[in-house]
Amino acid sequence: MTPLIQVAGLKRHYQMGGTTVRALDGVDIEIPAHTFTVVMGPSGSGKSSLLYLLGGLDRPTAGEISINGERLDQMDENALALFRRKMMGFIFQSFNLVSSMSAMENVAFPMQFSGIPVMERNQKSLQLLGQVGLADRSGHTPSELSGGQQQRVAVARALINDPQLVFADEPTGNLDTASGVTVMQLLSDLHKSGRTVLVVTHDQRMTRFATHKIFLLDGHIVSEEEYKSATLALDNQGE
């Protein structure tokens, strides 16, 4: 069976103040469908760059990205937008909810770009809010919700277009321990319901739910042992 995500020779270099930052420097990955993949790595390892490239939100410097057999690196902006709409849902560290909209409107927000009638949008939005345990909060704006609740709204929003793939960028990064666990549980439930989940995180706890783990160091994929010895060495240096 061909993997859902195939990445070959992926590079992402930035120019920063005259020096070239090699955020990703030749990465090959294959991720099968219906898996829960956790991408681990310290700050600056390139893990967020990887997520944004896989999500079609950024353009690679070199290399190929195929999702469901379609080459993202060859698509134009319009095709990428339509592909994201159909295939992907995103969860961000800082939630990125629209402050003037209610929880229900935030969840329904992506659907208006597909021209789905407002009644249908709201119905589905309420159903998803119920799924993340926020049915009674549908009329509240983000400022009236806790961080954990806001992230649950964001999870519901990621699911509104019924995507095959869910990308999460440090989803527990801004949350307290208990809220973080709730969000991890939700992501695990998504995986169990048949979706492919890819989470970029620092949070070691997330690995408990993972079926696949990817470790990144300085733009390269390394084995778990290499990653651990490197991070241990860093920790020792820190001490």
């Binding site: 994201r84 961000f92 770009f113 597909s114």
Partner: peptide, 16 residues
Amino acid sequence: TREIGLMKAVGATNRD
């Protein structure tokens, strides 16, 4: 700006 980024992430085209 971040809202624009979000719109694009959730599938808004440049035209939208």
